[in-house]
């Protein structure tokens, strides 16, 4: 029973990890909270569903969700971030909120507010190992997450592009002095982040075998909490915080009462914000004293 819950928790945690990575890519590199990521995630789910219902194979559906969300993210970057890059940090957050409102409304009008269901025959198989049983879907979700995280890690850590991104994250002014042009890089960061959110959307759609226009707010807000718990300044904190919160949630639902879980998750987020803004596992605080 416990092991079974662990498997279920890890599946949910995998999806949280992807969206939290999506949030923290933009937050870590540009210091901006892109609230529209919640809806990119929802859109990715719909794009993926459309592909699956068109009898396309799963990898294609995943790619469709990623590409679609990345394109919308590119529009958000051009209209909702670029004009405000020198404004107070709250301003671009508000403009992404505008996009969030638009996207949810558009999705409701296109697909309706009722959940869109997947037919049963997709991914019905289950695998059993001793007392633990995992559906093909769960394995797919965890597997896809591992591959995507590995890909992201490769891009960020090993490529010239990734180095430039990290330079910008480290210090935007210094990066500019070194001739790293931030314009195309921020676009790229937004698109990478959108692709991750889109992938997460496809996967969560598979997980629940259903999707609604409101799933973005519900899970997206939770993913913000996951990002905070992992540490807002660091991209990789989400790798720990995602599974942790996924498992914690499934456990409280199984043994506590399903409803206190949100209370616990957001409570944890606030505590982390106040006491360890660098995240659960983060290193030393880098905050400086008052600059006068």
């Amino acid at each position: 029973m416990l092991l079974q819950q662990l498997v279920n928790g890890l599946t949910l945690g995998a999806v949280y990890t992807l969206i939290a990575l999506s949030f923290s890519l933009v937050m870590g590199i540009l210091g901006v909270l892109n609230l529209a990521i919640a809806e990119l995630f929802m859109l990715g789910g719909y794009f993926g569903f459309a592909a699956i219902l068109a009898k396309l194979p799963l990898p294609v559906a995943l790619l469709a969700g990623m590409a679609g969300a990345a394109l919308v993210a590119a529009v958000i970057e051009r209209v909702g971030y670029q004009p405000f890059r020198d404004a107070p940090v709250v301003t671009p957050m508000l403009s992404t909120l505008g996009f969030s409102i638009i996207l949810q409304n558009v999705a409701t009008n296109i697909w309706g507010s009722d959940p869109l269901q997947l037919p049963d025959e997709v991914f019905g198989a289950r695998f059993t190992l001793g007392p633990v049983s995992a559906s093909a879907m769960q394995l797919t979700i965890v597997g896809a997450t591992v591959v995507l995280v590995a890909l992201l890690a490769f891009v960020v850590q090993r490529t010239a592009l990734g180095r430039a991104l990290r330079a910008v994250a480290e210090n935007r002014d210094v990066a500019r002095l070194l001739g790293v042009s931030a314009g195309p890089l921020t676009l790229l960061a937004f698109m990478l982040s959108g692709a991750l959110a889109g992938a997460a959307g496809v996967l969560i759609g598979l997980h629940y075998a259903a999707i609604t226009p409101y799933i973005g707010v519900e899970i997206g807000l939770k993913a913000i909490a996951v990002m905070v718990v992992g540490g807002t300044g660091r991209i990789w904190g989400a790798l720990i915080a995602g599974p942790l919160i996924g498992v914690a949630e499934v456990m409280t639902t199984a043994y506590g009462g399903s409803q206190i879980r949100d209370f616990v998750v957001y409570g944890l987020m606030i505590v982390i914000l106040l006491l360890r803004p660098q995240g659960l596992l983060g290193g030393a605080r880098t905050e400086q004293g008052p600059r006068v």
Binding site: G31, P88, V90, M93, G267, M269, I270
Partner: peptide, 14 residues
């Protein structure tokens, strides 16, 4: 800024 916005968001959900 953003950090307070996130914390208040968490408070509302709590």
């Amino acid at each position: 800024g953003i950090y307070l916005a996130m914390a208040t968001l968490g408070f509302g959900e709590m």
